[in-house]
Simulated assay, not measured.
Amino acid sequence: MAWLALDEGYEVSLVEGRVAVRRPAGRQLKAVPKALRDHPEVDRLRRLAEWLDRHEAACVAQVDAWMVSSLPVPTALLARVWRDEAWQAALRDLAVVGDADPDEVGFLRDATDAGELKVVNLDGETVRLSPRTVTLPHPVLLPDLDDVREFAAELDITQRVEQIHRATWTRPEDVKDSATEVREYAGGKFPSRFSLAARATGLGYRVSGGYATSRVRDGGRTVEAAVWIGEPYWEDESETGALSWHDEEGRAVRLGEVGPVAWSEGMRMAAALYAGRKIEEGGNA
């Protein structure tokens, strides 16, 4: 962004998303001088920086939602938003699959105005694709995920939206299909229900009533994973409870009917909550 002239020869601009000021001689200051903090141009740029932060977060959240739900995204839409740096940062290097060849995985590098995608395939070749839609698959659905991760490491790929290195869980073969709860991550103690709820919201999960929840679209069906975190307004020590899944009518889903993405995302939420528990020390730990 260009530098804008202020009073007494100072100049102001956005540098790496933050308001920066430099002296007439060109030296950039470490902080905005007190005399300029209320200047209209400084305030305007500060508001712009805040909007850009919100926009970047919204782009990441939307792309993450596409990926978690494995929703088909029109190629024309990707081409349209690619010019926006925030969208581009959220989309670049994500593994994509075109509707014409669902077995061909590539890492997205560019989207042209003509609706053409440039991807690096698993042979290391840059190819051009023109599918009508693409899917940003959840990693649990990617065949040979370990090979994809190894290849990504060779390319030094870094993803703004966690995809290929996202922690995944698969449903055990010995799970009781008629059961409706998983207690693997139950019993994690927290100083209070408030601290447990704060951890849930801090991780991006919704807190509703006594549960932390995550809504997932899996195979055309929407389910909600839920972990019990305690009654609202409970002020004493609290702990994580069982993980369960519910359909759109609120009915419990049997474990044998939980899809692979919903299972993985539910376990991921339960594990992330449990990881923040109090760790006992001493002889009784």
Rank of each mutant, 00 (worst) to 15 (best):
M1C: 10
A2C: 10
W3L: 11
W3E: 02
L6M: 09
L6N: 00
E11H: 06
E11V: 05
S13D: 06
S13C: 15
V15P: 03
V21I: 15
P24S: 11
A25F: 13
G26A: 05
L29W: 04
K34N: 13
A35Y: 09
L36D: 08
R37N: 09
H39D: 15
D43G: 12
R44W: 04
R44A: 15
L45E: 03
A49F: 00
V60A: 12
A61P: 06
D64R: 15
S69W: 08
L71P: 00
T75D: 02
T75P: 00
A76Y: 08
L77S: 08
L77N: 04
W82D: 09
R83T: 15
E85V: 14
A86N: 11
A86Y: 05
A86L: 07
A89Y: 06
V96D: 06
D101S: 12
P102R: 15
D103Q: 14
E104K: 13
E104Y: 14
E104G: 05
D110G: 08
D110M: 00
A111H: 04
A111P: 00
T112Y: 06
K118E: 10
E125F: 12
V127S: 00
R132W: 01
T133I: 02
V134R: 04
V134Q: 01
H138E: 01
H138P: 05
L141N: 03
L142Y: 10
P143Q: 09
D144L: 10
L145F: 10
D146W: 01
V148A: 00
E150G: 14
F151D: 00
A152N: 02
A153H: 12
E154F: 11
L155T: 03
E162Y: 07
R166D: 04
A167F: 06
T168L: 06
W169C: 06
V182D: 12
R183W: 12
K189G: 03
R193L: 10
S195K: 12
A197R: 05
A198G: 00
G204R: 04
G204S: 03
R206Q: 14
Y211Q: 11
A212F: 08
T213H: 07
V216I: 15
D218V: 11
D218Q: 04
G219V: 03
G220R: 07
R221S: 11
T222E: 10
V227H: 07
I229H: 05
E231N: 08
E237L: 13
T240V: 01
L243I: 12
V253G: 12
V253K: 08
L255T: 03
G256W: 07
G259W: 01
G259C: 01
G259Y: 03
V261R: 05
S264R: 00
S264V: 06
S264D: 07
E265K: 01
R268S: 00
A271V: 12
Y274P: 07
G276F: 08
G276K: 01
R277G: 07
R277L: 02
I279K: 13
E281R: 04
E281V: 14
G282M: 08
G283R: 09
N284L: 14
N284M: 09
N284W: 13
A285C: 13
